[in-house]
Design a protein around this nucleic acid. Sequence first.
DNA 1: GGTGCGGGCTCCCGTTACGTGAGGGTCAAC
DNA 2: GTTGACCCTCACGTAACGGGAGCCCGCACC
Lengths: 253, 253
Amino acid sequence: MSYSVGQVAAFAAVTVRTLHHYDEIGLLTPSERTRGGYRRYTEADLDRLQRILFYRELGFPLEEITVILDDPAVDPLTHLRRQHRLLRTRMDRLAGMLAAVETAMEAHTMGISLTPEERFEVFGGFRPEDHEQEAEERWGGTATFEQSRRRTAAYTKADWVKIKQEAGEIVHAFAAAYSEGTPASGERAADLAEEHRLHISRWFYDCGHDIHRGLGDLYVNDPRFTANYDTIAPGMAAYIREAIHTNAARRQA
Amino acid sequence: MSYSVGQVAAFAAVTVRTLHHYDEIGLLTPSERTRGGYRRYTEADLDRLQRILFYRELGFPLEEITVILDDPAVDPLTHLRRQHRLLRTRMDRLAGMLAAVETAMEAHTMGISLTPEERFEVFGGFRPEDHEQEAEERWGGTATFEQSRRRTAAYTKADWVKIKQEAGEIVHAFAAAYSEGTPASGERAADLAEEHRLHISRWFYDCGHDIHRGLGDLYVNDPRFTANYDTIAPGMAAYIREAIHTNAARRQA
DNA sequence: GGTGCGGGCTCCCGTTACGTGAGGGTCAAC
DNA sequence: GTTGACCCTCACGTAACGGGAGCCCGCACC
């Protein structure tokens, strides 16, 4: 079975013009043509297209993609490994940017202004000597997310019940503290925040104080999170956030 | 203190020509010039450049960046929030691709070959006949996100109280239905889901059934959302998700 | 077996975001 | 006061398509 340009285009979410272009430059020449001159793409062509789009997505110029794909010394697995590596690199970069944005947000709310060096740090992580590691560790993004995905994938139903119960207890404790007027800047609230942090670390991913702070901010800044927490009691999201910050500050002192 | 093109270029890891170009199109015009005609960039210019590069990195066309940055109604924090959101979306996409690559690797070592649909799933989760729009709105996100941003920016404190109260009522109704054993596949659950959808549409952004379904999936797939909902009752996230799907199916029939 | 029309074909010019000199001025140091 | 590094303004080149114009294919339908 083979496919027409239109079908392939719809399939791969590219335009017909793009496929024409790839044919023109010899990047993807359909294996067959009808006697009328119509392009007919085979499964193998689709396979190649998928790889093309993958490398394109990661910013490779088409010419380079041609070279990569026409290299006779590469089996599919090599491609997959390369793709895997590229994706992780890319995600690390984004994680770095994310961390920088969070830093900037903190800096902004605190009224601190950044130096020009700090501003552009986002885009390349130069100055190898200092904290190249820090961004990695902070939201370590890829690592963090992956870790969470890996771990949670292995959980049984019983695990989930336990997790949910634990989480429920923590939130209820927060709610109780809040309704009793316990200050978010105090010991008790901070203790609960620490419990919350450990809960996440135990079940999802290593949650350092920085990440935890980011999470607290998220509860307040993202309307959906806010709404969720505030369904328990109006102001809960902000309360939890402050407790988290209190706890983080305490540990840093 | 001010900087020359060369300094800025080295600093931001772009070419001098790029800076010239940005000047030409009015995207970044240096605040000063020497009598000899040399460009001189101030701190504020660097700040703007940083934002430019950020949005560029995420694939925004320069013209759109101009509009975004020249919008008088945006404070720095809004930018940061938007950036944060965009990054997370982007990372999610990459995470999806990473997972797909891993799946492909497993499939390869097992000697299984994937169907064409599975191959292209990586790039947005389409199936040609249905929701071509959905991928745009779901992953492209800009339009939806922008809408949400615009609206929420104008809300007063009273609005927020109202929003939270409404959200709380919906979730509590869900919790009640759930604890009473009302099936997620039934009318009542679907009605609640519809209410939920309308709530989002009214206060945040036009939430069609497709987007709504995506949201429901998110509640189950993202551990943080799951944990939040499940603090109310274990299984709540999955229950809400199914109710949403029921509702969406009902509307499509 | 004509015929309508959705899709496909080949030029070919337009666009975005710069690259890459050509030819000539500027500036701080020696 | 000159030299070498840096900067200026044209101006054409390029990559990766977008978007027609004008013409063909093919298959369903009468």
